[in-house]
């Protein structure tokens, strides 16, 4: 009996084929490597330099962005797991708070959810990762007041990493851009401007 059980265990263990390959998110992977159930993982902790609070100030205007990392966020459309950087922002113009998402509670379970007050936009204000790159992160950017989802690029300008993996970074550039947009018969207008300032350099706090 024991032998049978042991044999079964060995057979089942050997037949346990891995179904979900891990893909290093910062590597130069090919589209063929992306299969259903795969996991785009921050293998080398390349998200770390982005994480924290970044600020831009111009007189009484202030933009604060806070990045954190959430692991294994599942998307049921692409059927992929991805380590994600979540960005939350607060914008103050002329001393008046224009929009504040810093208190949003975002986790692996709700990162792809829609916003309760802006039903076509996502709850996560900035959702993305440093795909295939260690200094540039691509994000989906939710501009709630303009009711649009566009693209944000966040580029570390002075990242230095030593042999032990210790890093130092102080500045980064935020670039927002509109995706190509079709407005047929005037039914789908879009304001090309953004609520928050664009093409700015932020300093790590």
């Amino acid at each position: 009996m024991k032998n049978i059980i042991l044999t079964l265990i060995i057979l089942f263990t050997l037949s346990c084929k891995a179904q979900s390959p891990i893909v290093n998110i910062a590597s130069d992977y090919d589209s063929d490597d992306i299969v259903d159930g795969c996991y785009l993982k921050d293998v080398n902790n390349s998200f770390a330099p982005f994480i924290g609070t970044w600020q831009w100030t111009n007189g009484t205007d202030t933009l604060t962005i806070v990045f954190s990392k959430i692991e294994m966020v599942y998307n049921n459309l692409s059927e992929m797991y991805t380590d994600q950087l979540i960005g939350k922002y607060k914008y103050v113009e002329n001393g008046v708070e224009i929009f504040n998402t810093l208190d949003y509670d975002i986790n692996a379970n709700n990162a792809w959810d829609l916003h309760p007050n802006y039903p076509k936009r996502m709850l996560a204000p900035m959702l993305g990762a440093c795909y295939r790159n260690t200094t540039l992160a691509d994000f989906s950017f939710m501009d709630y007041l303009k009711d649009k989802g566009e693209v944000a690029k966040f580029e570390l300008l002075d990242l230095l990493t030593d042999l032990n993996g210790e890093f130092n970074v102080t500045q980064a550039k935020l670039t927002l851009s509109n995706r190509e947009h079709w407005n047929v018969n005037g039914q789908n207008p879009r304001d090309p401007e953004f609520t928050i300032p664009n093409n700015i350099t932020l300093t790590k706090q």
């Binding site: 089942f12 346990c16 084929k17 290093n24």
Partner: peptide, 17 residues
Amino acid sequence: GVLFILTNCQYDDTVGD
């Protein structure tokens, strides 16, 4: 134990590495 092993397969080697 066998069932546990079956439902907790390890991920493959990391693509990219």
